[in-house]
């Protein structure tokens, strides 16, 4: 063997390794920069009242700032609004998404299923602001007002493609023997799906649902057209309601409340991070 040739190849190998490492670090930099920025600016705002009090009025905030105190109040109205809308959206989107995903996984050759699959991809790529304006026309206009219901309809539409895809993919990688064993015992397809396939796919589907939640929890644009926002804590679903991302936008627009942006952002970021880590952990555990 030619020694020079081998050295040459090793050098190329090394160069590529370095290139990959540097590029990987470069992608990680913005992530850590964002996390660091939000954490440093937001962590001293997090207190018990931040989670239990609604947004202060601009006047109260102004007085507090004049007096040199920290801004009173918090984001409880946003947290509760987000939870209500997310809760309703999950209750609707999860069963529909799972059934649809099961249909797609079971009938890959069916023309209708192929069409639905294609539309699911399309829906996933639809800008959220468009979903917001369409739900505005569909729900807000007929109901003659902004509401938590309209907000959760927008979230359902955004969550569906993610749940459908994760259900479909998880069912497809289950061993065929599982389904055949169920059918060989005389079960019909629906029963085998409900009693054997879906339970076996639970881990993957649950992970998908968590990722879908973390994907939509920070959505702002569709909620502007549908939920609008609300400055006090409210539990009614047919009235305008607040949400954490909406609050961030409101804080940004009110010079007196700008300090609160960082606390709200940090909360949202930590929540999404936790959901993602949980989803990752579950996916790993389920794969073992």
């Amino acid at each position: 063997m030619d020694k020079r040739k081998i050295r040459n190849r090793l050098a190329k190998d090394n160069a590529l390794l370095w290139a990959v490492c540097i590029l990987a670090t470069l992608t990680a930099v913005p992530l850590f920069a964002i996390l660091g920025e939000v954490f440093l600016r937001g962590y001293d705002q997090l207190s018990w009242t931040f989670f239990t009090e609604p947004t202060p009025t601009a006047y109260k905030a102004m007085v507090a700032i004049e007096a040199g105190n920290s801004i009173p109040g918090g984001i409880a109205n946003g947290i509760i609004g987000t939870m209500i809308m997310l809760g309703m959206a999950v209750v609707v989107a999860v069963p529909i998404g799972i059934l649809c995903g099961a249909f797609l996984a079971e009938n890959p050759k069916n023309r209708f299923a192929q069409m639905v699959s294609y539309l699911t991809d399309l829906l996933q790529g639809t800008p959220s602001v468009i979903i917001g304006i369409v739900v505005y026309i569909w729900v807000v206009v007929p109901m003659k007002g902004y509401s938590a219901i309209a907000g959760s309809v927008a979230l359902v539409i955004m969550m569906l493609p993610l749940i459908i895809r994760s259900t479909e993919e998880t069912l497809k990688i289950l061993p065929a023997s599982l389904k055949e064993a169920g059918l060989a015992l005389g079960g019909n397809r629906a029963r085998v799906m409900l009693k054997v396939q879906l339970p076996a796919a639970f881990g993957g589907i649950f992970t998908g649902v968590l990722l879908a939640i973390s994907r939509v929890i920070g959505e702002t644009a569709p909620l502007m057209f549908t939920a609008l926002g609300c400055s006090f804590i409210r539990f009614t679903i047919d009235k305008p309601i607040s949400a954490v991302p909406l609050l961030i936008w409101e804080f940004f627009n009110d010079p007196n409340l700008q300090e609160l942006i960082w606390g709200a952002s940090l909360f949202l970021l930590l929540f999404v991070l936790t959901l993602n880590l949980t989803a990752k952990y579950l996916a790993k555990k389920w794969n073992q």
Binding site: P175, S177, L178, A181, G182, A184, L185, P199, A200
Partner: peptide
């Protein structure tokens, strides 16, 4: 007509 497969396939969640 019952069937037993090549690879043991007990239902994993049961």
């Amino acid at each position: 007509v019952g069937m037993v497969f090549q690879r043991p396939a007990p239902f994993p969640t049961m």
